[in-house]
Amino acid sequence: MSEDFGSAARRLRAPLLAALAPVTACAVALGGLTTWVGTGGAGRPPRIEVGTGRVFLPYGDTRDTSAYFRITNKGGSADRLTGITSDSPAADRTMLGRHRTTEGRAAYMSGAASVEVPAHGALAMSPLGTNVMLRARGRWQAGDTVPFTLHFRDGGSIRADAVVVRPR
Rank of each mutant, 00 (worst) to 15 (best):
A119H: 02
G155L: 01
G38W: 08
A119V: 06
G121N: 03
A25N: 04
T24E: 05
F69H: 02
E3C: 09
S77W: 00
G6I: 06
Y68H: 12
N73C: 09
K74A: 14
L33A: 15
M95A: 14
P147F: 01
D161H: 05
V117W: 01
L134S: 06
V115M: 12
P147T: 01
A29E: 09
F148R: 00
S126T: 11
T94S: 12
V165G: 06
N131M: 14
V37C: 07
E116P: 14
W36A: 15
G155E: 00
T52K: 15
V165Y: 12
S126H: 07
G41K: 13
T24Y: 13
G51D: 05
I71Y: 00
D92V: 07
G121T: 02
V55Y: 05
G32V: 06
S126N: 09
R10F: 03
A27G: 04
V165I: 14
V117Q: 01
V163T: 11
T102C: 10
D87V: 02
R11L: 08
G38D: 06
R159S: 12
G155V: 04
P58C: 01
F152R: 05
L57A: 03
G97C: 03
L128P: 00
I71E: 00
V165N: 09
S86H: 07
G155Y: 03
L123Y: 07
D87G: 04
Y59T: 15
E116W: 04
S66P: 03
A162V: 05
G6W: 13
A142V: 15
R98Y: 11
T52W: 04
R11H: 11
A142K: 11
G143I: 04
V28G: 12
R44T: 02
I48W: 00
F5H: 09
L123S: 06
G129N: 10
A113S: 11
T62D: 12
G31C: 08
T82H: 01
T85I: 09
G76Q: 03
S86W: 01
G6T: 13
T102Y: 08
G76A: 06
R47P: 01
G43M: 14
G76V: 02
D92E: 14
G138C: 03
T72V: 15
G104Y: 05
L12C: 10
L16I: 10
V164N: 00
G32A: 12
G6N: 08
D92G: 12
A19M: 12
T65R: 08
R168K: 03
L17R: 14
F152L: 03
I158T: 11
T149S: 08
G53Q: 04
V165D: 14
A90H: 02
A107R: 13
E49K: 08
M133K: 06
G38H: 04
C26F: 15
G38N: 05
H99C: 01
G6F: 12
G41H: 10
V55I: 13
V50Q: 00
G41I: 09
A119L: 00
R11N: 15
A18S: 08
A107H: 08
A136Y: 07
G156F: 10
P127D: 01
M133F: 06
T52R: 15
G155S: 09
R80P: 04
G31T: 13
G143R: 08
R100A: 07
L150K: 02
R139E: 15
A67L: 12
R135M: 13
